[in-house]
Computed example of a mutant assay.
Amino acid sequence: MTTLVRRHIADHGQSTGVMIGVLLLILLGTLRYDNFASLYNLSSFLNYNAMFVLITMGMCLVIMTGGIDLSVGTVAALSSVTAAGFSAHGLEVALPVGVLTGLAAGALNAFMIVIMRIPPFIATLATLLAAKGTALVISDARTVPVDWTSNFTQLGMNNVAGWLPWSMLLTVVVGIALWLLVEHWPLGRVMLAAGDNEDTANLMGLSSGWARAWAYVICGGCAGLAGVFLASGFGAGQPLEGLGWELTAIASVVVGGTLLTGGRGSIPASVAGALMLGLIFNLLNFENGLGTFNLSAYWQMVIRGAFLFIVILLQVKITRPLAGD
């Protein structure tokens, strides 16, 4: 394989491959299972995976800058608790409260990483523990029921045109905004430059520190909105949820072709990575229904870990020969 071909695969092959993979999984499911292409399965799939698509898009921005955010799962759980606590005031109050909870956690991460110069792994691990503890304290270690008399549950349980969940519609709006940010807005270009080489970006007069800070704040906001979806869709704030969500987000971002070292990333490809992982679990559920095998929910964590390991191994294999070019 020539260097030119390797470079093309490193730059575009993985992103294209994951989108083709999503189409192949959809084709497989449609041909093999009777109800796979039903509106009910489509709506349920989109509604459940809206949360993971959101945290994946936020994680994409962070990894593009060369960072990592381990706190997205517990921040989403905390946001679900705060949103559920304000659900009696309606969606117009509970939704902003949940999102603001996530933004506050993201701002805390940004402060520790950009201002205090704490490594992202340590800083976001601290936020993970703090968010989890806070969620357990304010919920008294129990689920927090939502107020069913308000309109709060409409976001997570109602559909547009009978099949498109409001949660996924809102996720699409956020996704378009983040795609524009990365592809067309100066802030997105600075994020990429900071991830590629922060010292060079600073020498060029770019505010790489602010770009990294915004990446963590936006990532926190996405986790906060995912928490609102969690509370609205399941009818309760879930302080013990979110375990392994960060692994799902990282796996989805990496399979979409974003480099863990930063400097390159794609919102659409990351979304495709999240949908691919969701489709794999959806297909496994259908196989369970056919009686082919019987995998418990705990196997999902094993599959996520194996999925992430294989993807990172492939990414290293593709990009390593380019280091000396």
Rank of each mutant, 00 (worst) to 15 (best):
G291C: 10
G98P: 03
N288A: 10
R189G: 05
V253A: 09
H89Q: 00
R320H: 15
A107N: 10
G106W: 00
N285D: 01
V182M: 02
L169Q: 04
G291R: 07
L206P: 03
L243A: 14
N151H: 12
G221N: 07
R189V: 04
H12I: 10
D34I: 10
I26P: 03
L108E: 01
G133V: 14
Q238S: 12
T134S: 11
G21V: 09
G273V: 09
V173Y: 07
W179A: 15
I20A: 15
L128Y: 02
V182Q: 03
A177N: 14
P120L: 00
W166D: 10
K132L: 08
L25F: 07
L125R: 04
I176F: 13
S44N: 15
E241I: 05
V228C: 09
V81C: 05
R6N: 03
R189M: 08
F309G: 12
L42M: 11
L28N: 11
L70I: 06
A83D: 09
V316M: 14
R7F: 05
G265I: 07
L91V: 01
V253S: 02
T292E: 04
V72F: 08
R264E: 11
G273Q: 01
D11P: 11
I122W: 11
R142Y: 03
I280H: 09
R304N: 15
M1D: 01
V228T: 12
C219N: 09
P186L: 09
G66L: 06
G220D: 11
V93I: 11
V253R: 07
M51S: 14
S270E: 02
I176L: 14
M19A: 14
A50K: 12
M59Y: 04
Q315E: 13
M19P: 13
A297I: 14
L136W: 04
N285K: 06
L275F: 09
Q14S: 15
H184R: 09
A131I: 06
I20R: 12
A76G: 02
H8S: 10
G66K: 05
T200Y: 00
A249R: 07
T319E: 02
N288G: 11
D199C: 12
A131Q: 10
W245M: 13
L25S: 04
W179M: 15
L178K: 12
